[in-house]
Design a protein around this nucleic acid. Sequence first.
RNA 1: GGCGGCGUGGCCGAGUGGUUGAGGCAGGGGCCUGCAAAGCCCCGUACGGCGGUUCGAUUCCGCCCGCCGCCUCCA
Length: 465
Amino acid sequence: MLRLYDTATATVRPLDLRTEGKVAMYVCGPTVYDRAHLGHGRMALVFDVLRRYLLFSGLEVNFVSNVTDVDDKIIERAAAEGRTEVDVAAQFEATWWEDADALGVLRPDEAPHATAYVERMVEFIEELVRRGVAYETSDGVYLDVGQVRGYGLLARQSLESLRAGARVELAEDKRSPLDFVLWKKAKPGEPTWASPWGPGRPGWHTECVVMSLDLLGDGFDLHGGGLDLAFPHHENERAQAVALGHPFARHWVHNGWVMVEGQKMSKSLQNFTTLRDLIERADARAFRLLVLGAHYRSPIEVTPETMEQSGAALSRLDALARRFSLHSPLEDAGFVVKGVGPAAQADPASVERFCDAMDDDLDTPAARAMIFELVTRANELADEGRSEEGRAVAATVNVLCAVLGLALRGSDDDVLDPEIAALVAERDRARARRDWASADEIRRRLSESGWVVEDSPEGTRIRHR
RNA sequence: GGCGGCGUGGCCGAGUGGUUGAGGCAGGGGCCUGCAAAGCCCCGUACGGCGGUUCGAUUCCGCCCGCCGCCUCCA
């Protein structure tokens, strides 16, 4: 059984499901006002791996991840560029899905939009006001956090110490600096929705409570996101649920940062690399492999050097796929389930070892390490001429990589240019008559065209560099 | 000020109270190969500093130094 670190209790504990065999999870998605960066990418990958592992374990997973399409930054950008908010949000939502697809991240089962939930949010806020936990001010409606039992759970701090460190200005009629906005009254030119407090828009923290409870129900299993969301975003979501007596998430999972020269990658520091840049420059699978190499809660440095190292490691995996003509099960199915279909080819003892690692708070570094040990083993067996045994081990590698969302690529010569194919055939003829000079000359030419040439028992084999 | 995290070999990055230092990358040597590529084998006197606990600490405790994060929008 999977044991996961839970931010609320600061302990690693067994995943305790609301309904046996079913996992309802909610992961906070992006605010679509700009291109996603590597930090968003890591978040998407971490939860994609968690989801895939739960599926592999035979659980039924309902994965919900929202899109925040109403927000100050979207409004600012729209104003700056003379566009509508809807237009800005649509553009960056589209790029978000493109990037996620490129990373091999499975699409959520549901991806609710804040703008589609405003009415329900208004009802939710009304209920909070009715119960006296929220109050109206000149510029909006706020939640009185002092009335929420256990506020500070996710920050792991008391209300008093949070108050002491608060850096927010205390607005005129706001009761406490920690009170957060549920409804923002509109300023001129802003997009609005009707409410009992006049035209305005919902605050960020309300959408996720309302949408998660609506789509997954009270006491859903797992709520996740980047560590920076633990406080105040998730704390505030929870506060609203608690204030209305809704059991909220049973587990809180947060991933660590992507670092840049020792500092957190963020928009405000301007030290970010967009996912698009990375995907254009490198194999997206190398990024996944890099993310898998560190524990999900540890910080990771993503630099051209670490990406290059990860790319080299990936090419070793691809080389194995080439050697054994492996076909990734991900090419046919989006994910794999233990013992089912192609996954049944995996060696049970190795799968057990793999699961032991993954069950331990998603220890992907250990899982990755054992996969590489299997790679060596498979090659070793093949070198000894025990190819069937080697093939079995390689098949296991293929399946375990697929569990982690990594599709191994055995070859990329499926659409071979006729001219290139002719060169390959010519080289085989030259080699057959032991005309090494010609064979080497052809290899040189292929190499100039970006191909790596390898001799194999089946003849010349080429692949892209 | 409050709360939390980190400091491991050339690089990335795990981990553990104890004879033999995950895994990957890079590097050196060897085997294989017509030559390569791929692969395999061998090679590394690591755990920020100072104390303490212990038969024994990189791993536990204390202090110190350095770095980072959250307490404001943020994956």
